[in-house]
Design a protein around this nucleic acid. Structure first.
Length: 467
RNA sequence: GACCCCAUCGUCUAGUGGUUAGGACACCGCCCUCUCAAGGCGGGAACAGGGGUUCAAAUCCCCUUGGGGUCGCCA
Protein backbone atom coordinates (compact mmCIF):
# COMPACT_ATOMS: atom_id res chain seq x y z
CA UNK A 1 0.00 0.00 0.00
CA UNK A 2 1.16 3.52 -0.80
CA UNK A 3 1.27 5.82 2.21
CA UNK A 4 2.16 9.49 1.72
CA UNK A 5 2.17 12.47 4.01
CA UNK A 6 2.23 16.21 4.23
CA UNK A 7 4.24 17.61 7.11
CA UNK A 8 4.18 21.38 7.45
CA UNK A 9 5.82 23.22 10.30
CA UNK A 10 3.60 25.85 11.87
CA UNK A 11 5.73 28.95 11.56
CA UNK A 12 3.26 30.92 9.45
CA UNK A 13 0.67 30.25 6.80
CA UNK A 14 0.21 27.48 4.24
CA UNK A 15 2.46 28.30 1.32
CA UNK A 16 1.38 27.47 -2.25
CA UNK A 17 4.59 25.48 -2.69
CA UNK A 18 3.55 23.40 0.29
CA UNK A 19 0.08 23.03 -1.09
CA UNK A 20 1.49 21.68 -4.32
CA UNK A 21 3.50 18.93 -2.65
CA UNK A 22 0.46 18.21 -0.49
CA UNK A 23 -1.65 17.90 -3.64
CA UNK A 24 0.84 15.53 -5.24
CA UNK A 25 1.02 13.43 -2.09
CA UNK A 26 -2.75 13.37 -1.77
CA UNK A 27 -3.29 12.36 -5.40
CA UNK A 28 -0.66 9.67 -5.36
CA UNK A 29 -2.19 8.09 -2.27
CA UNK A 30 -5.73 8.31 -3.63
CA UNK A 31 -4.75 6.93 -7.01
CA UNK A 32 -3.32 3.86 -5.31
CA UNK A 33 -6.09 3.50 -2.76
CA UNK A 34 -3.48 4.25 -0.15
CA UNK A 35 -3.35 6.67 2.71
CA UNK A 36 -2.49 10.33 2.92
CA UNK A 37 -1.40 11.43 6.38
CA UNK A 38 -0.99 14.82 7.94
CA UNK A 39 1.65 15.66 10.50
CA UNK A 40 2.45 18.95 12.19
CA UNK A 41 6.18 19.45 12.69
CA UNK A 42 6.18 21.64 15.74
CA UNK A 43 9.35 20.61 17.50
CA UNK A 44 10.72 24.14 17.56
CA UNK A 45 8.77 25.31 20.56
CA UNK A 46 10.13 28.85 20.33
CA UNK A 47 9.05 29.48 16.74
CA UNK A 48 5.87 27.49 16.40
CA UNK A 49 2.46 28.67 17.38
CA UNK A 50 -0.93 27.12 17.80
CA UNK A 51 -2.45 29.89 15.68
CA UNK A 52 -0.14 29.10 12.80
CA UNK A 53 -1.03 25.42 13.01
CA UNK A 54 -4.72 26.27 12.95
CA UNK A 55 -4.27 28.65 10.03
CA UNK A 56 -2.57 25.92 8.05
CA UNK A 57 -5.32 23.46 8.85
CA UNK A 58 -7.98 25.98 7.86
CA UNK A 59 -6.31 26.63 4.51
CA UNK A 60 -5.91 22.93 4.02
CA UNK A 61 -9.57 22.40 4.67
CA UNK A 62 -10.51 25.03 2.11
CA UNK A 63 -8.62 23.18 -0.62
CA UNK A 64 -10.57 20.02 0.10
CA UNK A 65 -7.58 17.70 0.38
CA UNK A 66 -8.80 15.35 3.04
CA UNK A 67 -6.22 13.51 5.10
CA UNK A 68 -6.62 10.02 6.53
CA UNK A 69 -6.38 9.20 10.19
CA UNK A 70 -5.45 11.41 13.07
CA UNK A 71 -3.20 14.42 12.66
CA UNK A 72 0.15 13.79 14.33
CA UNK A 73 1.69 16.56 16.42
CA UNK A 74 5.39 16.06 16.95
CA UNK A 75 5.40 18.19 20.07
CA UNK A 76 3.36 15.45 21.74
CA UNK A 77 5.82 12.72 20.86
CA UNK A 78 9.06 13.81 22.52
CA UNK A 79 9.12 10.85 24.90
CA UNK A 80 8.83 8.50 21.97
CA UNK A 81 11.73 10.15 20.15
CA UNK A 82 13.87 9.90 23.27
CA UNK A 83 13.54 6.14 23.37
CA UNK A 84 15.05 5.98 19.90
CA UNK A 85 17.85 8.34 20.84
CA UNK A 86 18.61 6.07 23.78
CA UNK A 87 18.46 3.02 21.57
CA UNK A 88 21.13 4.48 19.29
CA UNK A 89 23.22 5.53 22.26
CA UNK A 90 23.04 2.04 23.77
CA UNK A 91 23.97 0.50 20.46
CA UNK A 92 26.97 2.83 20.26
CA UNK A 93 25.60 4.28 17.03
CA UNK A 94 25.33 7.70 18.61
CA UNK A 95 27.34 9.54 21.20
CA UNK A 96 27.45 12.54 23.47
CA UNK A 97 29.36 15.54 22.24
CA UNK A 98 30.55 18.13 24.74
CA UNK A 99 31.66 20.72 22.26
CA UNK A 100 30.22 24.13 23.11
CA UNK A 101 28.49 26.39 20.62
CA UNK A 102 31.42 28.77 20.84
CA UNK A 103 33.90 26.06 19.99
CA UNK A 104 31.73 25.02 17.08
CA UNK A 105 31.64 28.57 15.80
CA UNK A 106 35.41 28.78 15.88
CA UNK A 107 35.71 25.53 13.97
CA UNK A 108 33.19 26.65 11.39
CA UNK A 109 34.91 29.95 10.81
CA UNK A 110 38.27 28.40 10.26
CA UNK A 111 36.77 25.94 7.81
CA UNK A 112 35.07 28.74 5.94
CA UNK A 113 38.33 30.63 5.83
CA UNK A 114 39.89 27.58 4.19
CA UNK A 115 37.00 27.50 1.73
CA UNK A 116 35.79 24.20 3.05
CA UNK A 117 32.26 23.13 3.65
CA UNK A 118 31.70 23.57 7.41
CA UNK A 119 31.31 20.27 9.21
CA UNK A 120 31.78 18.81 12.65
CA UNK A 121 35.17 17.18 13.01
CA UNK A 122 34.08 14.19 15.09
CA UNK A 123 36.27 15.01 18.07
CA UNK A 124 33.96 13.35 20.63
CA UNK A 125 33.14 10.37 18.50
CA UNK A 126 35.33 8.01 20.49
CA UNK A 127 35.68 10.13 23.59
CA UNK A 128 35.76 8.38 26.94
CA UNK A 129 37.51 10.85 29.19
CA UNK A 130 35.85 13.17 31.66
CA UNK A 131 33.86 15.92 30.02
CA UNK A 132 34.45 19.55 30.90
CA UNK A 133 32.27 21.01 33.61
CA UNK A 134 29.02 22.79 32.85
CA UNK A 135 28.55 21.69 29.25
CA UNK A 136 25.33 19.81 28.57
CA UNK A 137 26.12 17.45 25.71
CA UNK A 138 24.26 17.13 22.43
CA UNK A 139 23.73 13.70 20.93
CA UNK A 140 25.35 13.07 17.57
CA UNK A 141 24.83 10.12 15.30
CA UNK A 142 27.79 8.16 13.95
CA UNK A 143 27.54 8.77 10.25
CA UNK A 144 29.64 6.86 7.75
CA UNK A 145 33.05 8.47 7.27
CA UNK A 146 33.70 7.39 3.74
CA UNK A 147 32.06 6.09 0.62
CA UNK A 148 28.89 7.35 -0.93
CA UNK A 149 25.27 7.58 -0.10
CA UNK A 150 23.00 7.29 -3.06
CA UNK A 151 19.33 6.85 -3.65
CA UNK A 152 16.99 6.65 -6.55
CA UNK A 153 14.85 9.74 -6.55
CA UNK A 154 11.54 9.36 -8.31
CA UNK A 155 11.91 12.76 -9.92
CA UNK A 156 15.63 13.42 -10.23
CA UNK A 157 16.85 9.92 -10.88
CA UNK A 158 19.97 8.55 -9.23
CA UNK A 159 21.39 11.04 -6.74
CA UNK A 160 24.84 10.45 -5.29
CA UNK A 161 26.48 12.21 -2.36
CA UNK A 162 30.08 11.82 -1.37
CA UNK A 163 30.15 11.20 2.36
CA UNK A 164 33.45 13.04 2.74
CA UNK A 165 32.29 16.40 1.54
CA UNK A 166 28.72 16.16 2.59
CA UNK A 167 28.10 14.30 5.78
CA UNK A 168 29.22 14.76 9.36
CA UNK A 169 28.10 13.35 12.69
CA UNK A 170 25.07 15.58 12.84
CA UNK A 171 23.06 16.32 15.96
CA UNK A 172 19.97 14.23 16.64
CA UNK A 173 19.22 15.65 20.09
CA UNK A 174 19.97 19.12 21.42
CA UNK A 175 21.64 19.83 24.75
CA UNK A 176 18.19 20.37 26.28
CA UNK A 177 17.28 16.86 25.22
CA UNK A 178 14.85 17.77 22.44
CA UNK A 179 15.27 15.91 19.16
CA UNK A 180 16.12 17.67 15.91
CA UNK A 181 14.31 17.84 12.59
CA UNK A 182 16.05 15.18 10.54
CA UNK A 183 15.71 12.73 13.39
CA UNK A 184 12.01 13.19 14.11
CA UNK A 185 11.10 13.24 10.43
CA UNK A 186 12.73 9.89 9.98
CA UNK A 187 11.22 8.37 13.11
CA UNK A 188 7.73 9.53 12.23
CA UNK A 189 7.92 8.61 8.58
CA UNK A 190 9.10 5.14 9.52
CA UNK A 191 6.62 4.62 12.34
CA UNK A 192 3.73 5.89 10.20
CA UNK A 193 4.70 3.46 7.49
CA UNK A 194 5.26 6.18 4.90
CA UNK A 195 6.24 4.49 1.65
CA UNK A 196 6.55 7.55 -0.60
CA UNK A 197 7.92 10.88 0.51
CA UNK A 198 6.98 13.68 -1.90
CA UNK A 199 8.49 17.01 -0.83
CA UNK A 200 10.27 20.11 -2.09
CA UNK A 201 13.74 19.67 -3.49
CA UNK A 202 15.09 22.01 -0.85
CA UNK A 203 15.10 18.77 1.17
CA UNK A 204 17.30 16.96 -1.28
CA UNK A 205 20.42 17.43 0.81
CA UNK A 206 18.62 16.33 3.98
CA UNK A 207 17.93 12.99 2.40
CA UNK A 208 21.37 11.39 2.95
CA UNK A 209 21.16 12.34 6.63
CA UNK A 210 17.79 10.73 6.93
CA UNK A 211 19.05 7.65 5.16
CA UNK A 212 21.82 7.40 7.78
CA UNK A 213 19.14 7.31 10.47
CA UNK A 214 17.03 4.73 8.65
CA UNK A 215 20.10 2.56 8.36
CA UNK A 216 21.19 3.03 11.98
CA UNK A 217 17.77 1.90 13.12
CA UNK A 218 17.62 -0.91 10.60
CA UNK A 219 14.56 0.49 8.84
CA UNK A 220 13.54 0.38 5.24
CA UNK A 221 14.25 3.57 3.30
CA UNK A 222 11.12 4.90 1.55
CA UNK A 223 10.84 6.17 -2.01
CA UNK A 224 11.70 9.84 -2.37
CA UNK A 225 10.30 12.30 -4.87
CA UNK A 226 11.89 15.73 -4.71
CA UNK A 227 9.80 18.24 -6.58
CA UNK A 228 11.44 21.43 -7.86
CA UNK A 229 10.72 24.78 -6.28
CA UNK A 230 8.24 27.33 -7.50
CA UNK A 231 9.98 30.49 -8.65
CA UNK A 232 8.61 34.01 -8.83
CA UNK A 233 8.04 35.63 -12.25
CA UNK A 234 11.64 36.86 -12.16
CA UNK A 235 12.90 33.32 -11.72
CA UNK A 236 13.94 33.76 -8.10
CA UNK A 237 12.76 31.81 -5.12
CA UNK A 238 9.14 32.63 -4.34
CA UNK A 239 8.82 34.54 -1.08
CA UNK A 240 6.41 36.74 0.83
CA UNK A 241 7.77 39.69 -1.07
CA UNK A 242 6.19 38.35 -4.23
CA UNK A 243 2.72 38.76 -2.81
CA UNK A 244 0.27 35.93 -2.81
CA UNK A 245 2.07 32.93 -1.41
CA UNK A 246 -0.39 32.33 1.42
CA UNK A 247 -3.05 29.92 0.23
CA UNK A 248 -5.77 31.81 2.09
CA UNK A 249 -4.95 34.97 0.14
CA UNK A 250 -6.28 33.19 -2.91
CA UNK A 251 -9.57 32.59 -1.21
CA UNK A 252 -9.75 36.23 -0.18
CA UNK A 253 -9.00 37.37 -3.71
CA UNK A 254 -11.83 35.28 -5.08
CA UNK A 255 -10.12 32.22 -6.48
CA UNK A 256 -11.87 28.89 -6.51
CA UNK A 257 -10.01 26.08 -4.77
CA UNK A 258 -10.34 23.89 -7.86
CA UNK A 259 -8.71 26.59 -10.00
CA UNK A 260 -5.79 26.90 -7.62
CA UNK A 261 -5.35 23.14 -7.49
CA UNK A 262 -5.54 22.90 -11.28
CA UNK A 263 -2.96 25.66 -11.56
CA UNK A 264 -0.65 23.98 -9.08
CA UNK A 265 -0.84 20.52 -10.60
CA UNK A 266 0.21 21.91 -13.97
CA UNK A 267 3.15 23.74 -12.48
CA UNK A 268 5.82 21.11 -12.88
CA UNK A 269 3.62 18.29 -14.08
CA UNK A 270 1.69 17.63 -17.24
CA UNK A 271 -0.35 15.10 -19.08
CA UNK A 272 0.22 15.77 -22.77
CA UNK A 273 -1.56 18.91 -23.85
CA UNK A 274 -4.30 18.81 -21.24
CA UNK A 275 -4.79 22.01 -19.27
CA UNK A 276 -8.03 21.46 -17.40
CA UNK A 277 -8.19 18.69 -14.84
CA UNK A 278 -11.11 17.86 -12.61
CA UNK A 279 -10.15 16.41 -9.25
CA UNK A 280 -11.24 13.05 -10.56
CA UNK A 281 -8.97 13.35 -13.59
CA UNK A 282 -6.09 14.46 -11.42
CA UNK A 283 -6.58 11.39 -9.31
CA UNK A 284 -6.56 8.97 -12.19
CA UNK A 285 -3.89 10.66 -14.30
CA UNK A 286 -1.35 11.89 -11.78
CA UNK A 287 1.93 10.06 -11.54
CA UNK A 288 4.95 11.50 -9.71
CA UNK A 289 7.34 9.91 -12.17
CA UNK A 290 6.46 12.53 -14.74
CA UNK A 291 6.98 15.48 -12.48
CA UNK A 292 9.33 17.93 -14.17
CA UNK A 293 12.93 18.11 -13.09
CA UNK A 294 13.26 21.84 -13.46
CA UNK A 295 11.87 24.64 -11.35
CA UNK A 296 8.92 26.56 -12.71
CA UNK A 297 8.06 30.22 -12.46
CA UNK A 298 4.81 31.33 -10.98
CA UNK A 299 2.55 32.81 -13.63
CA UNK A 300 -0.41 34.71 -12.19
CA UNK A 301 -2.13 35.16 -15.56
CA UNK A 302 -2.54 31.48 -16.15
CA UNK A 303 -4.13 31.09 -12.75
CA UNK A 304 -6.49 33.92 -13.54
CA UNK A 305 -7.45 32.26 -16.80
CA UNK A 306 -8.11 28.99 -15.01
CA UNK A 307 -10.21 30.75 -12.41
CA UNK A 308 -12.23 32.40 -15.18
CA UNK A 309 -12.76 29.00 -16.70
CA UNK A 310 -13.95 27.48 -13.45
CA UNK A 311 -16.31 30.37 -12.77
CA UNK A 312 -17.79 29.87 -16.23
CA UNK A 313 -18.47 26.20 -15.62
CA UNK A 314 -19.36 26.18 -11.94
CA UNK A 315 -22.92 25.06 -11.07
CA UNK A 316 -25.06 28.06 -10.14
CA UNK A 317 -25.80 26.81 -6.64
CA UNK A 318 -22.08 26.57 -5.90
CA UNK A 319 -21.53 30.04 -7.31
CA UNK A 320 -24.28 31.48 -5.11
CA UNK A 321 -22.71 29.81 -2.07
CA UNK A 322 -19.22 31.06 -2.90
CA UNK A 323 -20.51 34.60 -3.38
CA UNK A 324 -21.71 34.74 0.20
CA UNK A 325 -18.09 34.90 1.33
CA UNK A 326 -17.95 38.25 -0.47
CA UNK A 327 -21.07 39.57 1.24
CA UNK A 328 -23.35 39.00 -1.69
CA UNK A 329 -26.36 36.81 -1.13
CA UNK A 330 -28.61 36.39 -4.15
CA UNK A 331 -30.06 33.06 -3.12
CA UNK A 332 -33.52 34.61 -2.71
CA UNK A 333 -33.43 36.90 -5.72
CA UNK A 334 -36.22 36.08 -8.22
CA UNK A 335 -33.92 36.63 -11.19
CA UNK A 336 -30.86 34.95 -9.76
CA UNK A 337 -30.49 32.66 -12.79
CA UNK A 338 -30.58 35.55 -15.24
CA UNK A 339 -28.15 37.42 -13.02
CA UNK A 340 -25.67 34.58 -12.92
CA UNK A 341 -25.91 33.87 -16.63
CA UNK A 342 -25.41 37.55 -17.37
CA UNK A 343 -22.27 37.78 -15.26
CA UNK A 344 -20.61 34.37 -15.38
CA UNK A 345 -18.54 35.06 -18.47
CA UNK A 346 -17.34 38.46 -17.36
CA UNK A 347 -15.73 37.87 -13.98
CA UNK A 348 -12.21 36.58 -13.50
CA UNK A 349 -12.63 36.16 -9.76
CA UNK A 350 -15.47 35.74 -7.30
CA UNK A 351 -14.54 39.07 -5.80
CA UNK A 352 -15.06 40.70 -9.18
CA UNK A 353 -18.27 38.75 -9.63
CA UNK A 354 -19.61 40.06 -6.33
CA UNK A 355 -18.72 43.59 -7.37
CA UNK A 356 -20.60 43.19 -10.65
CA UNK A 357 -23.65 41.88 -8.81
CA UNK A 358 -23.66 44.93 -6.57
CA UNK A 359 -23.28 47.25 -9.53
CA UNK A 360 -26.53 45.91 -10.94
CA UNK A 361 -28.52 45.43 -7.75
CA UNK A 362 -27.58 48.67 -6.03
CA UNK A 363 -29.22 51.87 -7.24
CA UNK A 364 -26.44 54.04 -8.72
CA UNK A 365 -25.35 56.80 -6.37
CA UNK A 366 -23.53 58.73 -9.06
CA UNK A 367 -22.94 58.67 -12.79
CA UNK A 368 -19.76 58.33 -14.78
CA UNK A 369 -19.23 61.87 -16.01
CA UNK A 370 -17.46 60.99 -19.21
CA UNK A 371 -20.17 58.54 -20.16
CA UNK A 372 -22.89 61.07 -19.45
CA UNK A 373 -21.12 63.66 -21.54
CA UNK A 374 -20.64 61.29 -24.43
CA UNK A 375 -24.05 59.66 -24.65
CA UNK A 376 -26.53 61.97 -22.98
CA UNK A 377 -26.44 64.65 -25.59
CA UNK A 378 -29.61 66.69 -26.11
CA UNK A 379 -30.83 64.08 -28.62
CA UNK A 380 -29.78 61.29 -26.35
CA UNK A 381 -31.83 62.76 -23.56
CA UNK A 382 -34.84 63.16 -25.83
CA UNK A 383 -34.68 59.54 -26.86
CA UNK A 384 -34.36 58.43 -23.25
CA UNK A 385 -37.33 60.54 -22.24
CA UNK A 386 -39.38 59.07 -25.04
CA UNK A 387 -38.37 55.60 -23.93
CA UNK A 388 -39.30 56.44 -20.37
CA UNK A 389 -42.77 57.59 -21.37
CA UNK A 390 -43.35 54.53 -23.51
CA UNK A 391 -42.21 52.34 -20.66
CA UNK A 392 -44.60 53.96 -18.22
CA UNK A 393 -47.57 53.76 -20.52
CA UNK A 394 -46.82 50.18 -21.47
CA UNK A 395 -47.04 48.92 -17.88
CA UNK A 396 -45.11 46.22 -16.06
CA UNK A 397 -43.06 43.46 -17.67
CA UNK A 398 -40.62 40.97 -16.30
CA UNK A 399 -38.80 38.68 -18.71
CA UNK A 400 -35.68 39.54 -20.65
CA UNK A 401 -37.52 38.80 -23.88
CA UNK A 402 -40.36 41.15 -22.94
CA UNK A 403 -37.98 44.03 -22.40
CA UNK A 404 -36.23 43.20 -25.62
CA UNK A 405 -39.42 43.04 -27.65
CA UNK A 406 -40.76 46.23 -26.13
CA UNK A 407 -37.51 48.11 -26.71
CA UNK A 408 -37.12 46.98 -30.31
CA UNK A 409 -40.70 47.91 -31.01
CA UNK A 410 -40.10 51.35 -29.55
CA UNK A 411 -36.97 51.85 -31.66
CA UNK A 412 -38.67 50.73 -34.81
CA UNK A 413 -41.47 53.23 -34.41
CA UNK A 414 -38.95 56.01 -33.85
CA UNK A 415 -36.74 54.76 -36.65
CA UNK A 416 -33.82 54.43 -34.32
CA UNK A 417 -31.07 51.86 -33.75
CA UNK A 418 -30.39 50.14 -30.47
CA UNK A 419 -27.06 51.95 -30.52
CA UNK A 420 -28.92 55.25 -30.05
CA UNK A 421 -30.46 54.16 -26.79
CA UNK A 422 -28.50 51.34 -25.17
CA UNK A 423 -25.78 53.38 -23.53
CA UNK A 424 -28.24 55.83 -22.03
CA UNK A 425 -30.22 53.03 -20.47
CA UNK A 426 -27.02 51.50 -19.20
CA UNK A 427 -26.00 54.74 -17.52
CA UNK A 428 -29.42 54.98 -15.92
CA UNK A 429 -29.26 51.41 -14.67
CA UNK A 430 -25.69 51.07 -13.38
CA UNK A 431 -24.22 54.55 -13.58
CA UNK A 432 -21.65 53.71 -16.20
CA UNK A 433 -21.32 52.69 -19.82
CA UNK A 434 -20.33 49.13 -18.99
CA UNK A 435 -22.68 46.31 -18.08
CA UNK A 436 -23.97 43.02 -19.44
CA UNK A 437 -26.64 43.04 -22.13
CA UNK A 438 -29.17 45.72 -21.21
CA UNK A 439 -32.21 43.48 -21.64
CA UNK A 440 -30.92 41.09 -19.04
CA UNK A 441 -30.02 43.97 -16.78
CA UNK A 442 -33.53 45.43 -17.11
CA UNK A 443 -35.11 42.10 -16.34
CA UNK A 444 -32.90 41.58 -13.27
CA UNK A 445 -33.55 45.04 -11.92
CA UNK A 446 -37.29 44.71 -12.46
CA UNK A 447 -39.86 47.05 -13.98
CA UNK A 448 -40.55 49.29 -10.99
CA UNK A 449 -36.92 49.92 -10.23
CA UNK A 450 -36.09 50.38 -13.92
CA UNK A 451 -38.65 53.16 -14.17
CA UNK A 452 -37.29 54.70 -11.00
CA UNK A 453 -33.69 54.60 -12.18
CA UNK A 454 -34.48 56.24 -15.51
CA UNK A 455 -36.46 58.88 -13.69
CA UNK A 456 -33.47 59.43 -11.38
CA UNK A 457 -31.15 59.96 -14.29
CA UNK A 458 -33.52 62.34 -16.05
CA UNK A 459 -33.99 64.47 -12.98
CA UNK A 460 -30.24 64.42 -12.38
CA UNK A 461 -29.70 65.71 -15.90
CA UNK A 462 -32.34 68.41 -15.53
CA UNK A 463 -30.63 69.60 -12.36
CA UNK A 464 -27.39 69.56 -14.26
CA UNK A 465 -28.73 71.82 -17.03
CA UNK A 466 -30.42 74.25 -14.70
CA UNK A 467 -27.16 75.02 -12.97
C1' G B 1 33.29 29.02 -1.53
C1' A B 2 32.01 23.53 -1.24
C1' C B 3 28.33 20.01 -2.50
C1' C B 4 23.76 18.73 -5.05
C1' C B 5 19.97 19.79 -8.73
C1' C B 6 18.34 22.04 -13.28
C1' A B 7 18.32 24.27 -18.68
C1' U B 8 12.48 23.89 -25.40
C1' C B 9 8.58 30.37 -27.34
C1' G B 10 8.08 36.11 -22.28
C1' U B 11 5.59 32.11 -18.91
C1' C B 12 3.53 26.82 -18.06
C1' U B 13 4.73 22.76 -21.00
C1' A B 14 4.57 18.37 -25.23
C1' G B 15 8.71 15.93 -27.15
C1' U B 16 12.46 10.06 -24.80
C1' G B 17 17.49 9.57 -32.23
C1' G B 18 14.39 10.89 -38.07
C1' U B 19 8.35 16.32 -36.18
C1' U B 20 7.06 21.99 -41.18
C1' A B 21 9.54 21.42 -32.94
C1' G B 22 2.90 20.65 -30.90
C1' G B 23 -0.57 22.83 -27.09
C1' A B 24 -1.93 26.56 -23.24
C1' C B 25 -1.48 31.59 -20.87
C1' A B 26 -0.04 36.44 -22.30
C1' C B 27 0.51 39.65 -26.68
C1' C B 28 -1.12 41.41 -31.78
C1' G B 29 -4.87 41.36 -35.90
C1' C B 30 -9.71 40.14 -37.81
C1' C B 31 -14.88 38.51 -36.95
C1' C B 32 -19.24 38.73 -33.77
C1' U B 33 -21.60 43.03 -31.16
C1' C B 34 -26.20 47.53 -27.37
C1' U B 35 -20.94 48.79 -23.99
C1' C B 36 -17.29 45.77 -21.58
C1' A B 37 -16.18 41.02 -21.47
C1' A B 38 -16.77 36.12 -23.25
C1' G B 39 -16.49 33.43 -27.85
C1' G B 40 -14.67 32.22 -33.04
C1' C B 41 -10.64 32.60 -36.60
C1' G B 42 -5.61 33.91 -37.65
C1' G B 43 -0.40 35.76 -36.43
C1' G B 44 4.47 36.53 -34.32
C1' A B 45 7.39 33.88 -30.70
C1' A B 46 11.81 28.63 -28.31
C1' C B 47 15.61 23.79 -28.40
C1' A B 48 21.65 28.72 -23.67
C1' G B 49 26.81 28.13 -26.10
C1' G B 50 30.76 24.84 -27.67
C1' G B 51 32.65 20.13 -28.54
C1' G B 52 31.84 14.98 -29.41
C1' U B 53 28.80 9.91 -30.53
C1' U B 54 25.70 8.78 -34.91
C1' C B 55 23.79 8.10 -41.67
C1' A B 56 20.73 11.31 -38.39
C1' A B 57 20.53 14.90 -32.37
C1' A B 58 15.97 19.37 -28.70
C1' U B 59 16.57 14.15 -27.50
C1' C B 60 22.90 10.35 -25.70
C1' C B 61 28.12 11.95 -23.55
C1' C B 62 31.64 15.95 -22.03
C1' C B 63 32.86 21.06 -21.11
C1' U B 64 31.38 26.17 -20.55
C1' U B 65 27.74 29.55 -19.21
C1' G B 66 23.43 30.68 -16.62
C1' G B 67 19.78 29.65 -12.80
C1' G B 68 18.18 27.23 -8.26
C1' G B 69 18.91 24.63 -3.60
C1' U B 70 21.74 23.14 0.77
C1' C B 71 25.73 23.81 3.99
C1' G B 72 22.25 25.47 12.21
C1' C B 73 21.75 22.69 19.07
C1' C B 74 15.56 25.96 12.13
C1' A B 75 12.18 23.07 9.89
Amino acid sequence: MIVTRFAPSPTGYLHIGGLRTALYSFLWARKNSGKFLLRIEDTDLARNSKEAAEAILEAFKWTGLANDGEILYQSERFDLYKTYVKQLLDANKAYKCYMSKEELDVLRESQMANKERPRYDGRYRDFNGTPSEGVEPVIRIKAPTEGQISFKDGVKGEVVFNVKDMLDDFIIARSDGTPTYNFVVTIDDALSGITDVIRGDDHLSNTPKQIVIYQALGWKVPNFYHVPMILNPEGKKLSKRDGAVDVMDYKKEGYLAEALLNFLIRLGWSHGDQEIFSLEEMRTLFDPSNINKSASAYNAEKLLWLNTHYIKTLPSERLIEELKYFDVDISLHVKKDVLIDALRDRAKTLKEFALHVRQILDTPQNYDEKAVEKFLTPQGIEILKGYFEALVSNGAMSETSEFELFTKDFLEKKELKLKDLAQSIRIAMVGSAVSPSIFEVLSIIGYQEVVKRIENLISYLRRDYEQ
